[in-house]
Amino acid sequence: MGMREYILKRVILIIPMLMGISFIVFMLMYLMPGDAVDLMLALQPDTDPAYVAHIKSIYGLDQPWYIQYFYWLKQFATLNLGSSFLSGRDVSEEIGARVVNTLSYQLLAVVFSIAVAIPAGIVSAVKQYSKTDNLVMTAALLGVSFPIFFLGLMNIFLFALILGWLPSGGAHSTVFLGRDIPHDFSYYLDYLKHLALPTLTLGLASTAYNARLVRSSMLNVLREDYIMTARAKGLKERVVVYKHALRNAMLPVITVTGMQIALTLGGAPITETVFSWPGLGKYFVYAIQHRDYFVIVGITVVLGTLILVANVLIDISYKWLDPRVEF
């Protein structure tokens, strides 16, 4: 199968997958006790059931879940994700306001993690059992065993409170909040500063993992015969490692990175909570807590699409890295 057909096939496959995911999410959501209106009104004094029923009917919550799913699907066919029970705004608008914030630090964290993990892993593999290796691996072990929440707080204490280099949370400093703030260079610089800690925290967590992965993958590759061949050609060690070994060592790393995208996204709610970051992860948890059904499904669908697309990209890059792969 050619690359083009493959991509086309994968993209088309996304649609039934999204339908499957949304169906399951709908089912699960309605298994959770209480709906948005129950939670909104239950603790208000003097709520009578007729009123609750009335409000529910406004939102269509009086229908059985499969009917609601059907309505949702009908809407979704026109790329309409419905609107939030809580805020009343369109789900696409709500997601739009946050998705860039989530993708920004998520991508940076992946880039950071790879940028640090690859050299660290290589050095550690090439100088196996050396002092550098021990240092890198101990750091990685610590990184893997710290929960993100804890790591995040440590970073806040260190970089915001003790050193005072970076802001402790949020996406903008107070002076940049407001209606008439020009979106100039200093505005974005401020945003980048705020981006640093979430990126660092999430990045560190996966760096630790990736460095270990690169190291072991690299060690395996360095034992391969073709590395000996490359050396026997008289190539410099640098060429042997970075050309011949690295590309092969990247194959398992890439595979795992594909799975990691889902994992790092899983770290989003905690990271965003610790750093007051206005992203999708925190919003997702909030929506679940408040049973904001369309938001839950909407985020699932958007993130699902992103993960699926990322996996297609990874498959393609895999093919590009390893000519043996056939689609």
Partner: peptide
């Protein structure tokens, strides 16, 4: 080398 299967780097032409 002994094993031509593994003596050539699989990712380069």
């Amino acid at each position: 080398f002994q094993d031509p299967q593994s003596a050539l780097n699989p990712v380069f032409t």
